[in-house]
C-alpha cells in the first residue's frame, strides 16, 4: 500500500524540496511507500482530506479541527518555538499609522491562507472592521498582496510574518507594519491519519531522532524548523479549542 503525505499549501516553493527530502527520509525510517502530494490551494487539500486521501499531514492549524475531530487524525509533533504569526501592513506613504486609522470600506488584500486571514481580521476588530465592511481582494501569494499595496489598489494587506520578512528589502521598505501578532500558540502540526496510525510510535521515534541526527537536522533547517517537539493529544485538542474560540 502507498500512503499519502502532504503539507499545508501555505508553504512556498522554497520549502517544497525540503518536504520532498523529509518524505524520502520518513519512507526510509518506516520502510513504507509514501507519496508526497502537493495541493495548489487549501480548497483542493480540504477536498482530499474529506475524501480520506491523506495519511500523514503537516497541517495548517485552521484545518486541525477537521482532521482530528472529524477524521480521526492524532498528533505527532510540532516545531519548537515556531508559531504562525500575522502582520497587517500598508503602503509606507499612506496616512494609516495605526489599525484604528483604517475605516469601514477599506480595500484589503489577503491570501487563501485561513489562519493568517483569521488573525488579520482579529487584529482589525479594534477599528470596528469585519468581513461585512471591508472590500476583500484575494491574492495568490504574499508577493501579490505586497503588489496591491505598492500599486495603491489596496489599503492594507495581511501577511504571514515569515513571508513578509522573506520579501525583498526593496519591496518591504515601501511598506509599513501597522501591527504584528504575538499569539505564540497557533502552530502547524504533524498529524497521522487512521490508515497509518498503527505506525504512530515509529513515526514519533523517527521525528525524535531527527533532532539528534545531523543529516536529518539539516532537512529540518531547510524547512525553517530548528527542532521538533512531540505533541500529546491534549496539546492538539487545546489548540483546536483555541481556534474554535477565535473562529466566528
Amino acid at each position: 500500500m502507498t500512503y499519502q503525505f502532504t503539507v499545508s499549501p501555505d508553504f512556498g516553493p522554497s520549502h517544497i524540496a525540503g518536504w520532498q527530502i523529509f518524505n524520502t527520509w520518513m519512507q526510509q525510517q518506516l520502510s513504507e511507500s509514501i507519496h508526497f502530494e502537493i495541493y495548489n490551494s487549501f480548497e483542493e487539500q480540504r477536498q482530499a482530506i474529506l475524501d480520506d486521501s491523506i495519511d500523514l499531514i503537516y497541517a495548517n492549524p485552521y484545518d486541525a479541527a477537521t482532521l482530528v475531530r472529524d477524521k480521526g487524525f492524532t498528533a505527532i509533533a510540532r516545531p519548537s518555538n515556531k508559531s504562525v504569526e500575522a502582520i497587517i501592513a500598508v503602503n509606507s506613504e499612506s496616512d494609516f499609522k495605526s489599525v484604528e486609522d483604517l475605516k469601514p470600506g477599506i480595500k484589503l488584500a489577503s491570501t487563501d491562507s485561513p489562519d493568517v486571514h483569521m488573525m488579520g481580521m482579529i487584529m482589525l476588530e479594534p477599528a470596528n472592521l469585519k468581513a461585512e465592511n471591508v472590500e476583500l481582494t484575494k491574492c495568490g501569494s504574499y508577493v501579490l498582496v505586497a503588489k496591491q499595496l505598492l500599486r495603491g489598489t489596496c489599503d492594507a494587506g495581511f501577511f504571514l510574518e515569515e513571508a513578509y520578512h522573506d520579501l525583498s528589502p526593496m519591496v518591504r521598505n515601501q511598506m509599513h507594519t501597522l501591527v504584528s501578532s504575538e499569539i505564540q500558540i497557533i502552530q502547524h502540526v504533524l498529524l497521522v491519519g487512521p490508515a497509518l496510525a498503527n505506525r504512530k510510535d515509529d513515526i514519533i521515534k523517527a521525528i525524535v531522532s531527527m533532532n539528534d541526527d545531523p543529516k536529518a537536522r539539516g532537512v529540518l533547517e531547510s524547512l525553517g524548523i530548528a527542532s521538533t517537539e512531540i505533541m500529546e493529544q491534549e496539546d492538539i485538542e487545546f489548540m483546536i479549542d483555541l481556534m474554535d474560540a477565535l473562529v466566528d
Binding site: 476588530e125 479594534p126 483555541l242
Partner: peptide, 9 residues
Amino acid sequence: TSVRRKPSR
C-alpha cells in the same frame, strides 16, 4: 477556555 482580544473603543 477563555481567549481575549483587543476590543474597539
